[in-house]
Simulated assay, not measured.
Amino acid sequence: MRAGDTLRFRGPAGAEFVVTVGAAFDERTIKARVDSGEWTPLDADPAPAGGTSEDGPVSRPPQNAQKAEWVEWAVTGLGLDRGEAEAMTKAQLIEASPADGDQ
């Protein structure tokens, strides 16, 4: 877990959310919330660059997904630099991503 990493969790009421590791949510704070059971991780580990995870290839997110999911896809699925992906608009990320059948 590094500063700038985007992690997905489910909260105590069942809502899913994304946290970017940084000053507000450092590794110690995130670990404490997970250990207490307040947050449930939805990703075992961020997928490595190259578009694969422990479960196989990373899937392209649906068009209505949050921008953070598209940034994560651009980094893990397309190999873009995280800073470059975060600077792009959601529309640019979608345009840069081939449809699943086009890969």
Score class of each variant (00 low, 15 high):
Met1Tyr: 13
Met1Ile: 12
Met1Asp: 13
Met1Trp: 09
Met1Leu: 13
Arg2Gln: 11
Arg2Tyr: 05
Ala3Met: 04
Ala3Asp: 15
Gly4Leu: 14
Asp5Pro: 02
Thr6Arg: 14
Leu7Glu: 06
Phe9His: 01
Phe9Leu: 07
Phe9Cys: 03
Phe9Asn: 06
Arg10Asn: 08
Arg10Trp: 06
Arg10Leu: 14
Pro12Tyr: 05
Pro12Leu: 03
Ala13Lys: 15
Gly14Ala: 10
Gly14Met: 02
Gly14Asp: 08
Ala15Ser: 13
Ala15Cys: 07
Glu16Asp: 13
Glu16His: 10
Phe17Val: 10
Val18Asp: 13
Val18Ile: 14
Val19Glu: 05
Val21Phe: 07
Val21Asn: 03
Val21Tyr: 11
Gly22Ser: 10
Gly22His: 11
Gly22Gln: 06
Gly22Phe: 09
Ala23His: 14
Ala24Gln: 14
Ala24Glu: 15
Phe25Leu: 11
Phe25Asp: 14
Glu27Trp: 08
Glu27Asn: 08
Arg28Lys: 15
Ile30Pro: 04
Ile30Val: 14
Lys31His: 14
Arg33Ala: 01
Arg33Phe: 09
Val34Ser: 08
Val34Thr: 08
Val34Gln: 08
Asp35Thr: 11
Asp35Gln: 13
Glu38Arg: 05
Trp39Leu: 15
Trp39Ile: 02
Trp39Gln: 11
Thr40Glu: 15
Pro41Trp: 11
Pro41His: 12
Leu42Thr: 03
Leu42Glu: 00
Leu42Ala: 01
Leu42Asp: 01
Asp43Lys: 11
Asp43Gly: 08
Ala44Cys: 04
Asp45Gln: 09
Asp45Ile: 02
Asp45Trp: 10
Pro46Arg: 02
Ala49Arg: 10
Ala49Trp: 01
Gly50Cys: 01
Gly51Glu: 05
Glu54Ser: 06
Glu54Asn: 03
Asp55His: 09
Gly56Val: 00
Gly56Lys: 00
Pro57Val: 06
Val58Leu: 07
Ser59Gly: 03
Ser59Leu: 11
Arg60Tyr: 05
Arg60Gly: 07
Pro61Asn: 04
Pro62Ala: 15
Asn64Gly: 03
Gln66Ser: 04
Lys67Val: 02
Lys67Asp: 08
Lys67Ala: 04
Ala68Lys: 12
Ala68Glu: 14
Glu69Asp: 15
Glu69Leu: 09
Glu69Lys: 02
Trp70Thr: 00
Trp70Tyr: 01
Val71Cys: 06
Val71Lys: 04
Val71Glu: 04
Glu72Arg: 12
Trp73Ile: 00
Trp73Met: 04
Ala74Cys: 05
Val75Asp: 07
Thr76Leu: 04
Gly77Thr: 03
Leu78Gly: 03
Leu80Val: 01
Arg82Glu: 12
Gly83Pro: 02
Gly83Ser: 09
Glu84His: 12
Ala85Cys: 01
Ala85Val: 00
Ala85Ser: 01
Glu86His: 13
Glu86Tyr: 06
Glu86Met: 15
Ala87Gly: 13
Ala87Val: 05
Met88His: 02
Met88Thr: 02
Thr89His: 04
Thr89Tyr: 05
Lys90Trp: 08
Lys90Gly: 00
Ala91His: 12
Ala91Gln: 14
Gln92Val: 11
Leu93Ala: 11
Ile94Leu: 12
Ile94Arg: 12
Ile94Phe: 08
Ile94Asp: 09
Ile94Ser: 07
Ala99Tyr: 00
Ala99Thr: 04
Asp100Ala: 13
Gly101Glu: 06
Gly101Asn: 06
Asp102Ser: 06
Gln103His: 14
Gln103Glu: 15
Gln103Asn: 13
